[in-house]
């Protein structure tokens, strides 16, 4: 029972330490809200203030976030690709038989024609919706990340639908990896344009122009990168199961 006991003690300790934060009931500070309400749209060009922060004021954090996604995708894909080459050994040196439950094989056969046909057709619609969410993120709820996730689910639908007959090139792991690293490179170039034009790293580079174009570009690039990245993770795990 030491594990249970440790869990209980951890929970109690965490509850004690975090209690003041959950009990906190002061009025929400309005500094940022009031500032953005007055100036946010003018300074960033985006009516959606969440997008204004995400890709304008705090785009540096967003860059870090895309790097995290890149690392997760590279790491996870690397682990799955290298996995089959591994010959695990026990102390005596005998390889451990990887446990493959029969259920697992049955599950991959559960993809019926119905699911394949439906999800294959739905995939394209979802992709278009994702692009819409992505590109209109500066004026309406949505944005690059949200659109990207929708695009990723579109890719998953396409992958589920590409059962048998020629699969869409969009569900190929190599293509997705290519799109993702290209998206990362474009994002860095866009971020560095400001350095070249003298306005600083991650600043909207065009002199005098409406800064909204920068947000739209970033929205599109991040959407495509996130879509490809998360799509790649899902596709890799799907094919992992089928393999």
């Amino acid at each position: 029972m030491p594990t249970r006991l440790a869990a209980l003690a951890s929970v109690l300790a965490a509850a004690f330490a975090l209690w003041p934060l959950f009990a906190l009931d002061v009025a929400w500070p309005g500094t940022v809200r009031d500032y953005l309400e007055a100036k946010g749209t003018v300074e960033s060009g985006a009516m959606n203030l969440v997008s204004a922060i995400y890709l304008g004021y705090r785009a540096y954090d967003t860059l870090g976030e895309t790097v995290v996604l890149l690392v997760a995708v590279t790491g996870a894909i690397g682990m799955m690709a290298a996995g089959s080459a591994l010959a695990p050994r026990e102390a005596g040196g005998a390889p451990v038989e990887p446990a493959r439950s029969p259920r697992r094989e049955a599950r991959s056969r559960q993809r019926t024609e119905l699911i394949a046909a439906l999800s294959g057709k739905l995939g394209a619609v979802i992709l278009i919706f994702g692009l819409y969410v992505m590109l209109y993120g500066h004026v309406s709820p949505g944005g690059g990340f949200q659109g990207g996730v929708v695009v990723a689910s579109g890719i998953v639908f396409l992958a589920l639908g590409s059962h048998g007959a020629a699969p869409s090139p969009l569900v190929g792991a190599r293509n997705l990896a290519r799109i993702e690293s290209a998206g990362f490179a474009i994002l860095l170039v866009a971020a560095c344009l400001g350095v070249a034009s003298g306005k600083g790293f991650l600043a909207p580079p065009l002199p005098g122009g409406d800064p909204v174009s920068f947000i739209i570009v970033l929205n599109a690039v991040i959407g495509i990168k996130v879509g490809a990245g998360i799509g790649l993770l899902c596709v890799a795990m799907l094919t992992e199961e089928a393999a």
Partner: peptide, 30 residues
């Protein structure tokens, strides 16, 4: 309007959380 900053910050935190989860699952699978 509500304060947009928490939403923007949590967007980032969610993505990071998803990435950590995905990596942890990959390690578990391995």
């Amino acid at each position: 309007i509500v304060d947009p900053l928490p939403q923007a910050l949590m967007l980032t935190a969610i993505v990071i959380g998803v990435c950590v989860t995905a990596l942890a699952l990959a390690i578990a699978a391995r």
